[in-house]
Design a protein around this nucleic acid. Sequence first.
DNA 1: CAAACCGGGATCTGCCATTTAA
DNA 2: TTAAATGGCAGATCCCGGTTTG
Length: 368
Amino acid sequence: MFQKQVLRFLWPVRGCASLPAPRRPCSSRPTNQGRPPENESLLESLSLLGVDLSSARRRQPGVLRRLLTNERGLALFLKSKGAEPEAVASIISRFPRSITRSCQHLEERWTLWRNVFRSDAEVLGVLSRSPESFFRSSDNENLQENISFLRTLGMTGRDLHRLLTTAPRTFSNSVELNRSMVEFLKSMCVRFGGADPQSFALAVISRNLYIFIRSTGRIRANVDFLCSSLGLSDAEALGLFHGHGAQILDVSHESLKKNVQRLREKLGSLGCSEDHLRRMILNYSPVLFVSSERLSDKMDCLLDGGVPLEKILRKPKILDFSLDCLRERLLHLNALGYDFQRNGVAVLDTSKKRFFSKLQRLSPDTYG
DNA sequence: CAAACCGGGATCTGCCATTTAA
DNA sequence: TTAAATGGCAGATCCCGGTTTG
């Protein structure tokens, strides 16, 4: 109890267990390149926990020089939540600074995360996957503000759960950063003449859970590029980004440009116009996720398999499926003399189960 | 009834650069 | 000055099935 008070007095701002490293006296010169040496007993203690020291050293060398750390407290804490020793070692190896958090701080942060999740196991799962997301910030107040802010926006418990599970880094962003992303999304809505910026922002977030871990600069660049490159009207842009286009906002800007350009070239070589390109992307913009080489191969595969180009342009979603999957299905369908022109291509955009029951109906003798 | 529409699930971290704090 | 905190980046689908529609 006494010790805790002392620590809090010495480091009242952040809930940190450790003291700042004291000045080294002049008489004992630092040994390696003017830096104080690593803390030998800390290294021992970490080794005992199974931590990969070289990994820790490579990532956050400063931590290994600290005189006061809380690795044992952290290990006990995580164990009490159900973590295996290997998981603890992995967490510390990947984010060494985790050992500088005090037990009280850990309890607080865990509680805040736990309120969003359904069980300790879920928290542990995400934490193990991405230790950095949990530990990178020591600001629990900011975490609380983030949760309040997102709730105020109108996000439900389920939304928060999806968000924290999928993109846990979001919750370690400063609340100002998240707020500015929301403001940016609202301004997008206004720019395109939308009526309800708030629900537009929520829709984009719900369709693209990674949005908060992107920069507004990237999103803006992608929006501007798509609008000008495709010559979108306000209404088209609004509809696109509110719908499936939300997903493609966080593709890296260079990739997006490249994929649009390659798609443009591919369609051009097939005799399509700019308008075909525009309509294809508006029909299913996630087609821009497909890497350009793969996309070209898939289109060739479909065309060779007898799928009319017009059908592909109208339903680019079939390009989502793997080359192997498309080949296999085309093989089956061609063997049965399936007419894509007459019967459409929706049969390619189904689950395996549905596809084979469809085949069965088409040819009970072969597939029954 | 089957086809078409539509959205969601898994996973997406680990590293570097810059700014801030002590 | 060092280390902590924070922002930002690269990478580049595939598939399933509930619900609505015809």
